[in-house]
Write a protein that binds this DNA or RNA. Structure first.
Lengths: 292, 292
DNA sequence: TAAAAATACTCCATAGGTATTTTAT
DNA sequence: ATAAAATACCTATGGAGTATTTTTA
């Protein structure tokens, strides 16, 4: 029982005339006759009574035309939804992001939402490791992680980030970023330690390369707070340059010249199962990155 | 977008392996590949990611497989319901009947209901004219009317009926059914006049052939009541022989020997649009009639 | 008898099969 | 290197067209 026959049947049930219906369907009358006859064989009963004045639905035909209509409608809906999904107009997209893309990702997502209002877009704040796991598990479709990424994924570079030393202009002594070991005696304002590898760990290994453990005098949960505390003269902070949009008077920043203090951040996604939504998002992202 | 392709697609989406799915579908692997590829062209996006370890649904594929399942399910349901309707297991049947078949029709209907529990069967008490109109309008599927019936309908004889004269054995004078004109002075117990042609009209024309108008002394709404009144000596009654199952002590009946006092009653139905239900009912009816 | 559908027959599109190549891990 | 899917090519089923016959009112 194929759909093209059901379509013909439904049309004929409306017109009740083989010749006319055939013409309107761009079919020959015998072709339509054969289709209907085939349906009648499959059902096991005549669907029409053929007479001098066209055709009349039988009782079975009346019952079956309702069923046929449902199938045809469902098929049309399926095709439409499939095509819309293919055009990236339907579906859902989940994006993971970390602190380095906390300004970029919401920007791209809001543009994406405006372009595809019927797509469900979700964003999730996660660490790099969590994002990689979530990508593998299919929980998120795109993540923003440190590059390079495992060959298991595809990626696209988004921004370069590096660590900077922030200190108050009023504070004495002034620490020299050229020689980090001078920070041995400094007080540090830090974000809380998170599931490694987090910024905390990175600062730790950076200090370890200069044979000291940083003295943490205060923790704060947000970058602006950290900078505020630094400005207030509590101590120094090491943080990613990407977070310096919220720059504060009275604080100087200097990039740290150490290989582990530089890295690239990129969007990452699974090689397989890519949807048009992923592609569309990445395209927007590329445009956004090019603009900045 | 045809159903056989959707079926293959749904199966493949469950197995995620072209070769295996093809084998289970009695298809060759290239045939299945071609079907899926065709679907992908129609949708406008890949439905699977083909890899070393079988196939994986893409995001679009995941969305579309749900749609496809709905279509396949709807199609299976349609076919099943169509076939059941064709076997007379589904649908509705409305039967009209008059007083002559008031015992026969419910009998056949209850047998029919037992055979086809899922069929909605309705019976409607109507005059012959009403039944013919209802047949034309499609309000009823089968009627029980006086034969012969217009060539517009098909029919099947059910019973012979004729009018009988009923009178009390105690009543004097005893009326002679051979000479109806002796009834000129008799008192008649009658059913109320209904929309013609009813029994009332028929008795009237029978009397008119003998040049008198019957003197109606009492009306009653049921045949048993009429007979009871006759037994009580109120008068005579002319009624159809088919109603004499409810015979009563002290009442004699004699068939009236007049051409307009005989007729055949039959089942009638439309020539077109006949359903297996109609056929099934008529078959049961035939058996029932043969038994009596 | 005339209009409508069915039949007979032909053609061709396309589904399906076999053998082989390409791809991905 | 190897398993799996794609490709190439062939066959054949059956869907569609034209001409004609049959049906029915």
């Amino acid at each position: 029982m194929e759909i093209y026959r059901l379509r013909s049947f439904v049309l004929l049930a409306e017109r009740l005339n083989f010749g006319e219906t055939a013409r309107l369907s761009n079919l020959s009358q015998p072709a339509l006759s054969k289709q209907i006859r085939q349906l009648e064989v499959e059902i096991g009963a005549p669907l029409f009574d053929r007479g001098r004045h066209g055709a009349q639905l039988t009782a079975v035909g009346k019952l079956f035309v309702e069923e046929a209509r449902l199938v045809v409608r469902q098929a049309d809906l399926a095709l439409e939804r499939g095509q819309r999904a293919a055009r990236g107009e339907l579906g859902s997209l989940t994006v993971g992001f970390g602190f380095s893309t906390v300004t970029l990702v919401p920007l791209v997502i809001s543009r994406f939402r405006r372009l595809h209002p019927e797509v469900e877009v979700e964003m999730r704040d996660m660490s790099t490791v969590e994002q990689l796991e979530a990508l593998r598990a299919g929980t998120i479709d795109i993540g923003f992680v440190r590059l390079p990424v495992e060959k298991e994924f595809r990626s696209q570079p988004v921004l370069k980030d590096r660590l900077v030393l922030a200190q108050s202009v009023h504070h004495k002594p002034v620490y020299d970023v050229k020689d980090l070991s001078t920070l041995k005696r400094a007080s540090f304002v830090m974000l809380p330690r998170r599931r490694s590898p987090s910024l905390y760990d990175q600062v730790l290994s950076l200090c370890a390369r200069h044979f000291f453990h940083p003295r943490v005098i205060q923790e704060a949960h947000e970058f602006p707070t950290v900078l505020g505390l630094v400005a207030a003269g509590l101590g120094v902070a090491i943080l990613p340059e990407s977070q310096l949009r919220t720059r504060i008077e009275g604080v100087t920043v200097h990039p740290i010249d150490d290989p582990i203090a530089h890295w690239r951040v990129g969007a990452a996604w699974r090689k397989s199962g890519g949807s048009p939504l992923t592609a569309g998002f990445l395209k927007l992202l590329k445009e956004e990155v090019a603009d900045t």
